[in-house]
Design a protein around this nucleic acid. Structure first.
Lengths: 110, 110
DNA sequence: TTTTTATAACACCTTTTGGTTTCGTGTTTA
DNA sequence: TAAACACGAAACCAAAAGGTGTTATAAAAA
């Protein structure tokens, strides 16, 4: 019910460092493509492609204002990432606990 | 300091669904490659490649035990992901707060 | 010692990714 | 209306990703 069959998922979308930077930029405020492109050594077309991928993943929304298209950060899909991480955090903490026990009980294994 | 110039970063490593499944498998207990491969419709060689990528990202460690190589989950690098997410969670909560204010103050925008 | 098992290392192939340039379309502005 | 601007779409390209099968090597078992 929460995954409407997107072409690109959030894991894939954030795999690219350029796309992660774009998201950080958009976190500050909405921006049209030209403004975004100025922050990268890439063509406007390349940035446009990245925005499409981010859009497919539901991480940005776009809205035409006159002759420009303003992009906005849509952080909600990151919840999936958070949930996925939560699964491992239990193991993580368990491992740290185990390590703690080990260190406390066996000061020198040799 | 914390990023020892890895060939694959954690964002890239978890982008592939097969690799995410492998991590979930290894969360249960250490496993050699054959045991891992049995859970996927892929060749052992393909799984081996995925394990190398996970290893490059520091997400698994390997240890030879006789003639088999046991892989173990190493969840610590996921902290980078968690930190990255934390940055957006502030915006996230701010947006939800704004939405809440909007709904409370303007029952019907039309 | 021979055979089987577990894996690593190659060589190779196909698809996807990330980038480019070019061209077309709609929107301001002069 | 003409020029400048912002963007989308298409064609193209190189490199990386993801997969295969084959071969080599070391350990365990027969």
């Amino acid at each position: 019910m929460s995954a409407p069959a997107l072409k690109h998922d959030v894991f894939q979308a954030i795999a690219d460092p350029t796309r992660r930077s774009v998201l950080q930029l958009l976190a500050q405020h909405d921006m049209p493509i030209v403004a975004i492109s100025e922050n990268f050594p890439l063509s406007r077309t390349a940035i446009n492609k990245h925005l499409h991928i981010l859009s497919d993943a539901g991480l940005v929304s776009s809205r035409r204002v006159g002759r420009e298209t303003r992009y906005r950060l849509q952080p909600e899909p990151l919840a999936e990432l958070k949930d996925w991480l939560a699964f491992f955090e239990t193991y993580w903490h368990d491992r740290l606990s185990l390590l703690k026990d080990f260190v406390e009980k066996e000061p020198d294994p040799q």
